[in-house]
Every structure is written in C-alpha cells, then in structure tokens.
Amino acid sequence: MTSLIDRYVYTALRHIPEQQRGDIDRELRASIEDAVDARVEAGEERETAVEGTLTELGDPERLADQYSGRTNVLIGPEFYPAWRRLLTLMLAAVLPIVVIIGVVVQLIEDPDIGKVIGGAVTAILNVGIQMAFWTTAVFVVLERTGAGPGRTGLKLNWTLKDLPRYEPSSVPKTEVAAGVVWPILLTAALIWQHFGLNEVPVLNPANWSFWWPYMIVALVIGAGYQIWLFRRRSYDRTVTVVNAVQQLLFAVPLIWLLATDRFFNPEFHNFADLGGGDVKHWFTVSVIVVVALGTIYDMIKVAVRGEQSRRSLPSKVPGTGNYNFGS
C-alpha cells in the first residue's frame, strides 16, 4: 500500500520534467520528513503530523508548477492585451467579411433564403469559434514557450498609433469598406440575375439598353466616392454636396423605374407564388420606401457630419458617454 507521502510525491513528480525528478523526489521527501518529525516532537501523532504537513504544502500540482517554473495561467498579463486586441479585430472585422463572402457564394449557387440564412448562421458559429480557438492557441503557445515580445516579430507593444481616432471629421473605416463592397455586390447580383440564372431574369431585361448599365455606372461612382472620401479624410460642405449628387444619381432613377413598373421583368411570375395577392405591388412599394428613406438618412448623416466638422462642434463619442470637442 502506498503511503500518503508517496501519493503526494508521485502526484507532484508526474508534472515535473523527467531530468529533474530524481533530485526533487529526494529533496521533497527529506523536507516532508523533517516537517513531520518536527510536528511529532511537538507532540502530534505521526498520522496527523503527516496530514498536517501535506495539507500545508498544498496542491501538489501547484507545487510542481512552481518547481518547473511554469506559469499557471493560460495567457499571462504580458500577452493578454495583445490577445484581446487581435481577437476583437478578428471577430469584429474579419468574421463579417468571411460571412458576407459565404452568403454571396451561396446566393450564386442556390438563392434559397433558408439556405442563405442557415449558411450565414453556420458560418458565424463555425468561423467565429475557429477564430477564437486559433487566436487563443497561438497565444497559449507563445506563453508556454516563453517567447517574449523581443524575441518574436510580433508587435505586442502598445504605441500611440494604436489609439482609435474619435474626431468627428475622421471617416469611419468600416463605413468606407462597406461603401465599396456594397456596390460591387449589387453589380454582381444585377449581372448574375440576368446571365447567371438559367431561369427567367427577375429584373426587366429591356433596361439593359440603358438603365441597367447606367445603374452599374452609378454604383461604380458610389464606390469611387467612398474611396475619394477616405483619402480626403474629413467631412465638409463639398462632401455633403458630392454625396447628395451620387446618392440621387442612383436613387432617383431606381425609384422612377420601380414606380413606373419598369423595374421587374414582366415575364417573371414567381411573385404570385409567394402567397397570391398583390405581392409584387407591396414589394415595389416597400423597396421604394426603403430606398427613399435610406437615401435621405445618408444625405442628412453626411450633412450633419460636415457641419459638425466645419464648426468644430462637439460630437458624441460612441460607447464612452463623452463628447469630442474637436481640435
């Protein structure tokens, strides 16, 4: 039968590198016996003395960690801020892009709304978990191997450049990115619904003589506007006017096509299948309302930003409860 001391020592040694075991084994036993003897001399029973000594020494795995100089944390304070920044970036910026690409591919292959939503949810879960896992795994390896920031090429030191910009004049990067990706997606969808499907096109083929190419040009102008805005770096009255023009270039003809029933293909009858009634009419009205409201909202938003920037008015900084008073 193994004694309590044996069990304790074995448990500790299991977590210690092999070449150190022999020495630690002897030393640890000697130290335990010394402590037990001292307790016995003080009048304790040997059994209680052993129990007391081992309890005082505490969790043998913790002791082993201390002996082998291991950190008993997954990611220590040195790496934690970098880990959090990278994980936030992955989940907030990279994940949406991956999901959008997945949705587009699904739309091209099989535009079934159920499959599109299902695919998006699956992608968010799968890719999100993979991202979180691998990001964490990389940092755990860095922590274990003791590769300090100096020895790796990783940029772990925080610098002033890492501070987000909060000026009302600065152009949000995510909006610019979305503003470029969105026209590309719409153009792709427009071309694909006509040429990519072997079925009846959803949108009116007659418009290929002028209005659909015009829409593509308007969308390209929209993407170009976003890049121009990004390089300009700030909002002002010029931006307000240019934005309004490029918005109206797209929205006015679109609404006109919808309102005059030239938007959808007259040969496309799948609307009736969606539950009878005047689905097409209501769908047209909804699209007109969404496009009109979206355009007006965007024009007002850009105009307000331009005015705030021009007058250096304080703007609300999201998520902080603070106001930015500009510079």
Partner: peptide
C-alpha cells in the same frame, strides 16, 4: 513564508 514557495524558490 510557505514551504511550497520556499522549496521551489531555492532551486530557482
């Protein structure tokens, strides 16, 4: 000082 701190410390 605790024994479980001191013994590993000596080896370090």
């Amino acid at each position: 000082v605790e024994a479980n701190t001191l013994y590993p410390l000596l080896r370090r």
